[in-house]
Design a protein around this nucleic acid. Structure first.
Lengths: 254, 254
DNA sequence: AATTGCGTGTTACGGCAAGTAACAGCTACC
DNA sequence: GGTAGCTGTTACTTGCCGTAACACGCAATT
């Protein structure tokens, strides 16, 4: 199960730090080429180890812990990750990937607008409930030393919010509505779900289904309001004719 | 200006770490009592120094920087703050306090529901725009070493969300609606505004007024939807008859 | 077959920032 | 005067990220 997800991680990693196409750099050497796949596999393996270490040690793992979990010593880790942030970022990608792998199929299923929202939120809450320590690790970021732009969570949240932006933007434009607020709304909605999940994870004062229902309700109202303001009324329980397709990271490559 | 805000900080600090009422503990000594006010003043002074240091050094200030800014050496700092988190928490409180000091008066003004929402959001965005480094410092938390419950931002966000909960809860109950989702919604809305602000601060891809307008719009739609679902319709531009009063931290003391 | 490139791995160290002795002086209560 | 509680210092320890230096293995080149 984990393996399947990780299998796709290599390509994702390429996105953040694209592999230099080093074929024919003077002394064209087949050796570097030969190892490339292996290096990716190794990286993924270490990311998995990190995920396991986070699960056992909690969100405050050190590099030594992760190295130990992977069964190697620290310098080995640093051959594959430039620094802690790099690894953390990879872990974040792993999490995003897992989340997307679970959300995508629900989007391909039939369902009304509200039902789709419900499934996305339910899936999200399910994931953070399943990996609470990983979630904390990713979300409670500790990168005071790094520039803001490279911050893992910001990056991951941005990825998700951007997907949502594209989705909403398409809808809005296809309905010929002003899409000026779409980006802000996307980031806002993502933040809303994240914050609620954060709070819920700490307190657990209601069931997951209840929270899912409450969030679905308010988000639907928000979207419905925007549509109504544009003169469009959609029945929340009618199947959607426009089927959305999430494009997560692939579009960002080229 | 800053001084005014800080003047109230002493009492806020008491909330998080209540001063042991040590009068008449065997050897009732007037000396401790005499210094108490002084210690609070000192703490506040250091918090201000920290805020200044954050402004100049950026969010990744060290304790040495702060000590230098305050014109003392590090151990002095540690006489007033048990550790870094303690100081950070105090800085967070300072920020929350500033925010609340600015929001409160706008709530006492007349205005429709939508206008009130707009003012709160606009004020919030104004504050984080005015203190971007401070904001990053507080929000991009780095406390992997501390238990989750004592996390500064969580604490501060919870404070705000709780105020909102009380506010919304009162409304809902006075309108005889189900208030079960109020807490989740509050945390969600706070997170939504925070996330949007975060994104906006990084990108600055639209004016503050535009973002305020977009957020106001979607939040109003959300609230309006909840009310309509309960059979209540409120004109967003009519003055509110039920005037809210924010009670921020005072209620948490006893 | 020998060399060379790129991977594997180790132990031990450097460096930076948080936090802590240990020490010394000042003021006001008792 | 003695002492409690503050003022302040320099110099240290600790912990963790990250690195230097060194050794081995395998396959491609020569």
């Amino acid at each position: 199960m984990l393996r399947q997800v990780t299998a796709t991680l290599g390509s994702v990693s390429q996105i953040s730090r694209p592999v230099k196409a080093k074929q024919s750099t003077g002394h064209g050497d087949a050796r570097r080429e030969r190892w490339r796949g292996h290096r990716q596999a190794r990286r993924a393996e270490f990311v998995e180890a990190a995920v396991r270490a986070i699960g056992s040690c909690g969100a405050e793992v050190g590099m030594d812990d992760i190295a130990a979990e992977a069964g190697v010593s620290k310098p080995v880790l640093y051959r594959h990750f430039s620094d802690k942030s790099d690894l953390y970022l990879a872990v974040g990608e792993w999490g995003t990937n897992l989340l997307m792998e679970r959300i995508s199929p629900t989007l391909r299923q039939e369902g009304s607008a509200r039902e789709r929202i419900r499934r996305i939120i339910g899936t999200y809450l399910g994931v953070i409930e399943e990996y609470p320590e990983l979630y904390r690790f990713v979300v409670r970021r500790n990168f005071a030393d790094r520039p803001v732009q490279t911050d893992p969570v910001t990056t991951e949240k941005t990825v998700i919010a951007n997907s949502l932006s594209r989705l909403l933007g398409e809808y809005m434009r296809s309905l010929e509505l002003d899409s000026g607020g779409v980006e802000a709304w996307s980031h806002g909605l993502v933040g809303m779900v994240q914050a609620s999940g954060d709070w819920w994870l700490d307190r657990h004062s209601m069931s997951r289904d209840d929270l899912t229902e409450y969030l679905t309700k308010i988000i639907w109202f928000a979207i419905d309001g925007v549509l109504r303001a544009g003169g469009i009324v959609i029945d929340p329980d009618e199947p959607l004719e426009i089927v959305p397709h999430l494009r997560v990271v692939e579009d960002d490559v080229d």
